[in-house]
Design a protein around this nucleic acid. Structure first.
Ligand SMILES: [Zn+2]
Ligand SMILES: [Zn+2]
Ligand SMILES: [Zn+2]
Ligand SMILES: [Zn+2]
Ligand SMILES: [Zn+2]
Ligand SMILES: [Zn+2]
Length: 264
DNA sequence: GAGTTTGAAACT
DNA sequence: CAGTTTCAAACTC
């Protein structure tokens, strides 16, 4: 099993006690080695300790197979049905910060809170938990059932935009928002997740394509088979709508450090 | 930079 | 599963 761990611009840490081999460490959590920007102490998250890192990763994966799957899943780029384009895999549990500061993982990733969040007094600027415009599978299914025609338009327009991007016709590397479409299904590179100098922030951070492919989306995202057959969309189409893909958290434009790629 | 607040991760 | 502790980041001054 190959592990793709690189450093990436904007990812760094200042860990003191975790030795950067626990998820407390942002670098480790993002599947990157620590880099020049890190000010960590007793860091084991380096090429030199590849085995240690791999061991720590396996240990984590054993407990949580999704541990290294990006927490933010892209779903849609913004429209009346589903204005919020991303969704946190587990949701947040903010108690005191009301989801309007970066303490909140949803807000930090520029996505609204969903019904899966257990936040209190949610004031997330990207979408408040429980509002209809917040993405979650239930809302999408309801929309499919209640507004099939609108959903058809969304489906078509999304397909169109994705196809344009795929063909290179649309090549904006300056996203309108942090929530722009990215079709990772056609992302074929397996050796380079992250291009230190030229990367746009549409790349998924810290996960190999293969790794993502091997791990299904959050089981909670799945829907009942019964619901699928009760409307005019095919299962493939519904999956397509529910699977408008994972997205990135916005990458701060800090000066980058990049450790030497070393795939094994 | 020091000190506080915060919530995810880890632990029990 | 829930309650507690640990941890590093976000925030405040
Ligand atoms: Zn670290
Ligand atoms: Zn680091
Ligand atoms: Zn480190
Ligand atoms: Zn929150
Ligand atoms: Zn949330
Ligand atoms: Zn919230």
């Amino acid at each position: 099993m190959t592990t793709k761990i690189k450093n990436g611009r904007g990812i760094s840490c200042n860990c003191k006690k975790s030795k950067c081999v626990q998820l407390y460490c942002d670098c480790f959590g993002a599947s990157f080695y620590c880099g020049e920007d890190c000010s960590c102490e007793n860091c084991l998250n380096r090429n030199d300790y590849e085995d240690t890192v791999e061991l720590a990763r396996r240990k984590r994966k054993l407990r949580d197979p999704y541990a290294f799957v990006p927490k933010i899943h892209r779903v849609e780029g913004g429209n009346q049905l589903m204005p919020i384009a991303g969704k946190h895999r587990k949701g947040c549990t903010c108690k005191s910060s009301m989801c309007y500061q970066n303490y909140c993982e949803c807000y930090k990733a520029n996505v609204g809170c969903t019904s899966e969040c257990r936040c209190k007094d949610c004031q997330n600027n990207y979408g408040i938990k429980g509002e209809h415009n917040v993405y979650n599978p239930t809302h999408i299914m309801r929309a499919i059932n209640e507004k099939p025609n609108d959903c058809k338009k969304v489906l078509d327009s999304t397909r169109f935009e994705l196809s344009q991007r795929q063909s290179g016709y649309l090549q904006d590397s300056t996203p309108r928002t942090a929530l722009q479409y990215t079709d990772h299904r056609n992302y074929t590179s397996t050796t380079r997740l992250y291009t230190p100098s030229t990367s746009t922030n549409t790349d998924m951070i810290g996960t190999s394509r293969r790794e993502f492919d091997n791990v299904p989306l959050d089981p909670k995202s799945y829907i009942d088979d019964d619901q699928i057959w009760n409307n005019q969309f095919t299962p493939e189409e519904i999956n397509e709508m529910l699977d408008w893909n994972p997205c990135d958290p916005s990458i701060p434009s800090s000066t980058g450090s990049a450790s030497t790629p070393d795939d094994k």
